[in-house]
């Protein structure tokens, strides 16, 4: 289990992470989501002991990363944003070196390295120099380094960057497989990646945790019953707006106007469905409805809303 307690990191006057607290349960896959510069990498670097926090602490399986760094670090496998590879080594040499500094027992080094190579599918390039490998393979070697020795906690910072679509699918199934008996934390600024593989999502913006929960919970929490309508009408904009003004509690915005057709985006209050009433109101005003589509606020919108709202607040 990982406990992050009131983590704050300041770089001079800039605050990268502010009072961040959360708990990560065992054998789950956690997604760390946020726009660029939200503080994801900084938080991960602090959790793995690469950076020190200005305030707060991180407990990895009960070991404080500040007070017992060796014990805490030996529980973690970390793939940073840029895989930390020595390019003059071959993947095999590199993984043996990593196994040694991870203090894996001598007799277990070879089987552990072979297992990591097999798991990440780098057997074909094991004896080529890392500097001659493509970005995707380098990423895999980094991934092999993180899973080497089967640490209970695996932290992956943007693991899908630089991979082709096929490799992304492979990586996803790999992460899902690992999530069965490891705690996996991965970060991304792309929502679909996270919602695809993660059991729980932590949304972070401007260094603060703005929401957390399962993907379903987040959708429910932010968008339960709230409907968004996209309307296309034939008529003048003023006339349409006049009809829409007759409904209370709706927020409308005109999204386009051409060839006598007007489009509106209408957000309905929670739990209300006024599609019938809208139809009759427009019919009474003799404005034909050319199109009406409805959607429930998606996770993507939750994400945009949370991270965007934070920006406005600042």
């Amino acid at each position: 289990m990982i406990e992050v307690k009131h983590l704050t990191k300041r770089y001079g006057p800039n605050t990268a992470v502010e009072d961040l607290s959360f708990t990560v349960e065992d054998n789950r896959i956690y997604g760390f989501l946020g726009p660029n510069g939200a503080g994801k990498s900084t938080t991960m670097n602090i959790m793995t002991g690469y950076l020190s926090a200005t305030e707060g602490d991180v407990l990895i399986n009960g070991h404080s990363i500040i007070e017992e760094p060796e014990q805490a670090k030996s529980c973690i496998g970390f793939l940073p944003e840029l895989p930390p590879l020595y390019t003059e080594m071959t993947p095999y040499e590199y993984l043996v070196f990593v196994a040694e500094i991870k203090k894996i027992r001598k007799s277990e080094i070879k089987p552990a390295v072979e297992e990591a190579i097999k798991l990440t599918g780098i057997d074909g390039v094991r004896s080529r120099l890392i500097k001659n490998l493509s970005k995707g393979y380098r990423q895999r070697v980094g991934f092999a380094e993180a899973v080497l020795g089967k640490p209970p906690v695996i932290i992956l910072d943007e693991p899908m960057v630089g991979l082709d679509p096929l490799q992304i699918i492979e990586m996803r199934s790999l992460i899902k497989e690992l999530g069965r008996d490891h705690t996996v934390i991965l970060s991304s600024h792309i929502l679909s990646e996270i919602s695809e593989v993660c059991d729980r999502i932590l949304i972070i913006s401007k260094g603060r945790l703005v929401a957390s929960g399962t993907p379903e919970e987040l959708e429910q929490q932010m968008g339960s019953g709230r409907m968004v309508l996209n309307l296309t009408l034939r008529g003048s904009r003023e006339a349409c707006e006049k009809v829409l003004a007759g409904f209370e509690g709706m927020s409308c915005s005109c999204t386009g106007e051409e060839n006598g057709e007007v489009s509106f985006r209408v957000e309905l209050p929670k739990g209300e469905d006024v599609r019938d009433k809208l139809y009759f109101a427009f019919a009474d005003a003799r404005i034909p409805i050319l199109g009406m589509t409805s959607q429930i606020a998606s996770l993507e919108e939750v994400f945009l809303e949370l991270t965007g709202a934070e920006k406005e607040a600042k």
Partner: peptide, 14 residues
């Protein structure tokens, strides 16, 4: 510069 110190400093080495 190449950030390889990340592997050293996040390993259980002193």
């Amino acid at each position: 510069r190449s950030k390889t110190d990340q592997i050293l400093l996040t390993s259980p080495l002193k």
